[in-house]
Design a protein around this nucleic acid. Structure first.
Lengths: 158, 158
DNA sequence: GCTGATATGTCATTATGTTGACGCATAATG
DNA sequence: CATTATGCGTCAACATAATGACATATCAGC
């Protein structure tokens, strides 16, 4: 139990530091850690044709109301564009603009890689794999906890 | 690099889920994950005689301005009290009130322990130790990164 | 005692995160 | 075609994060 306490406290600190140092790493591009996460998601091949706000919210594990504001700001900055979905016209598909992709690839990605280098300096491949494994395990438990607490109100499929 | 990317994405998701599920675990007591962190810090034996706002901010790794608001709300709710430090009268020492301690021990702690049980359900002692180790390692790197980026503006001693 | 460093509080701005509530478009049903 | 259900987007309220700037009080050094 004492171990659990320490673990969660460190996770809490990590969350704060990730936000702080991550945002600082890309602040010259006018980005934040969250916007970085959005661009990262949209740069995936499976998001090629655009992704709905709801799907993106579930992917990033943030509320759709929160993501909505985030997207607005990124649209304002010219990084994203949204267009109605032809198949389900309730949805708006979010895609990266050419300008956004350029900022992402030429400016943000190099800085993010440099950030990874420093933040994971003394991590071996084995360390990385193990850490990732534990984070996934923890995430899985927290997702289940979330579903149980919410009573399955919103469909939380993966 | 791909591993690093996945690791940080999962850490990002973990941060969001920690906030969401953690706050939900103690919302009946009117607490949040951050207030929980504050009460946890103040319940440590070394915080017996009170802890200054600056020290607490460094301990939790949040900004002093942010913590200031947090403390105000918790004072408003009767969980905390602040008093001038006799030795250094610039400082105000933050302590838990009796009421705060009671809420913490009798209501919050049991729920937090139940939360730990669920969130770390399938973690062995070895898993816990390893995860903690990796979080500390990551935290250490991010702290160094933070200090370097800030240029040592604020004293960031540990 | 004056000066400079430090601790805090406060105000402001911005970006995140949550939840609840409402409206609209679509889907599913009669 | 009308009714209902659902998904989605948005507004509102609140708590949390960051930063910068300023005022005030106190400590430490001269």
């Amino acid at each position: 139990m004492e171990l659990a306490n320490r673990l969660f406290f460190r996770l809490y600190q990590c969350a704060n530091m990730l936000h702080k140092t991550g945002t600082r790493a890309v602040e010259a591009e006018g980005l934040t850690t969250q916007q970085w996460a959005v661009l990262g998601a949209l740069s995936q091949p499976q998001a090629e044709g655009g992704i709905s706000v709801g799907d993106l919210a579930r992917y990033l594990m943030v509320s759709r109301q929160n993501l909505s504001g985030l997207i607005s700001r990124m649209e304002r900055d010219g990084h994203l564009s949204t267009a109605p979905d032809g198949r389900d016209r309730r949805s708006r598909l979010v895609t990266m603009t050419e300008s956004g992709r350029k900022v992402w690839v030429t400016q943000a990605l190099p800085k993010i890689h440099a950030y990874y280098e420093q933040a994971l300096a003394d991590f071996s491949i084995s360390d990385l794999t193990h850490t990732l494994h534990y984070l996934l395990k923890l995430l899985d438990n927290m997702k289940r906890l979330d579903d149980e607490t919410r009573g399955g109100k919103e469909s939380g499929e993966d």
